[in-house]
Every structure is written in C-alpha cells, then in structure tokens.
Design a protein around this nucleic acid. Structure first.
Length: 263
DNA sequence: ATGGTGGGTAGCCCA
C-alpha cells in the first residue's frame, strides 16, 4: 500500500504544527505541498525529517507560491517545469524508488488567474490558460504511470461549486477554464480520482474562502485534484478529502486530499 | 452580498 497526500498549505512555516498533526493522523507515505511561501533554505526540512519524511524535493520561492514533496519512500527529483516561463515555483516532479517504484508524482500549483476572466483586461487570466496549455502539450508525450496532484485552481464540474450558474463568470469555473483543463485531461486520459470515488453530483469541496460569509454558507469549490494516468488509476483503492482540517485553528483555506494505492 | 479575510513582506502583491 502506498498513500499519497496533497495539500495547499498557504505558508508551510506558519502551519507547520498543522502539517505535523496531519501527518500523525493520516500517516501518508508522501505529502505534496503547494503554496509553501518560502525559499528552499527556509523550508522546515528537519522537522519533517524527524517525522520520517526524510526524502524531500523542495522548489521554493521568496514570499509566493512554491511547492514541495516530502516522503518516507525514497524518491528522485525529475524536473521543475516553468509553464509560464516567468520563474515562479509551481511544479516539482519526482519518481518513487521504493514501494510504488516507477510511479511518477507531479506536484503542481496552477496560477489562480486574478479576478477578471478576460485575457485583455487581466494578463494573469491569460497566463493561467497558457500555463494549462503548455501542460497539455507536455502531457501528450507522457508514457509512465503518473499521478498529478495539486491546486489546479479550476472547479471543472457543475457540482464542484456551490452555485454553478452564479460562478460561470467567476475565475475558477468559467467555461474557457473548464474547456482548457478538459483538453489537458484528454491529452493523457487522466482519471479524476476525486470523482471516481465521490461521483457527481455529490458535494465535494476542497476550498472555502477565508471570508466569513462564504464559509458559513458552505460556499466551497473543488479546486484541488488528484488525477491518475490510465494505467495507474486502477491501482487507486481509496480516496478522501480531509475536510476536518478546515475547522482547525488558523487553517489553510484548502483541505488535503489523500489517495491509497495498492502497490 | 464586488465586500470581505489571510498569507508574505515592506509599502504592496497575491490568493
């Protein structure tokens, strides 16, 4: 059995105690973090190593973004794609070397895309679409069993948001984003494990705004995903969102996802 | 209900 977790932590230094609690309670073999918001030398490497996560691939950046994959299983870092070509730290790819040997684990933080869903008015929105477009061309040539996880910043299905009609004009759920992410999915035949295990139209959110009104009304969105390549997906035997973390004190706005593989 | 809240970091950017 190999258990993989993914969590947008929104500052790993601020929430290190929550990461430690999550690792103690869920005991995944591998944890993929997004939005670590620190440089590699500031990453709490020793604290996580003391919990057994001694194998680490950290792609940090000062103040913003940043991803890290920490593991009890030996791993080898493969690459760090810059799909915007602007130096932002949004991806790290590794290969598992012990249990799960041969699995490639892609940890990605797709840009949020700003507030206005219009390329001309808001360059960040175009950069988000272009990021996914470059990911799509990359995915077309993949030929190894791969799990891609992270904060995709897109809620693809109608039931992935609290109000589909209202959110059609809100970045994260616009038709152009959903279509663009759909082309990425088709490029490799990715299996959306979130919906394989929690089928539509069941409520299944991974993110709630910090703004209190939205939280009270359960106005969540499914922005975080674990997608398996076709040859790997059948090995996934369990999948869950750990929604309880959102009720912890001073939480991340995202909750972790966990998948168990029979490997 | 286009405001509001929460990060990092130095006068704002990002989510």
């Amino acid at each position: 059995m190999v258990t993989i977790a993914s969590w947008n932590i929104n500052s790993v230094r601020l929430r290190l105690p929550q990461v430690e609690r999550f690792l103690a309670e869920e005991a995944p073999d591998v944890l993929c973090l997004q939005e670590i918001k620190c440089q590699a030398h500031q990453f709490p490497a020793r604290a996580l190593a003391e919990l057994g996560y001694v194998h680490q691939a950290v792609h940090g950046q000062k103040g913003y973004h940043g991803v890290a994959t920490v593991s009890r299983i030996p791993l080898r870092e493969l690459d760090r794609h810059d799909w915007q070509d602007n130096g932002e730290a949004r991806h790290v790819g590794v290969e598992l070397l012990g249990p799960g040997k041969g699995m490639v684990l892609e940890n990605v933080y797709i840009p949020a895309g700003g507030d206005v869903p219009d390329r001309a008015a808001n360059p960040k929105f175009g950069q988000k679409l272009d990021f996914i477009g470059r990911m799509t061309r990359w995915a077309e040539s993949l030929d190894r069993p791969t799990l891609i996880v992270g904060d995709f910043n897109v809620a693809p299905l109608e039931c992935d948001v609290y109000d589909h009609k209202a959110l059609l004009k809100v970045v994260s759920h616009t038709p152009i984003e959903v279509e663009t992410l759909g082309r990425f999915q088709q490029a490799h035949g990715w299996v959306d494990l979130g919906r394989r295990f929690i089928p539509a139209p069941e409520r299944n959110y991974s993110w709630w705004s910090y703004r209190s009104y939205w939280r009270q009304k359960d106005q969540g969105r499914r922005l975080d995903h674990m997608w398996a390549s076709p040859q790997l997906a059948p090995q996934a035997i369990a999948h869950r969102f750990v929604e309880a973390t959102r009720t912890w004190e001073q939480p991340s706005d995202h909750v972790p996802l966990v998948t168990e593989f029979a490997l």
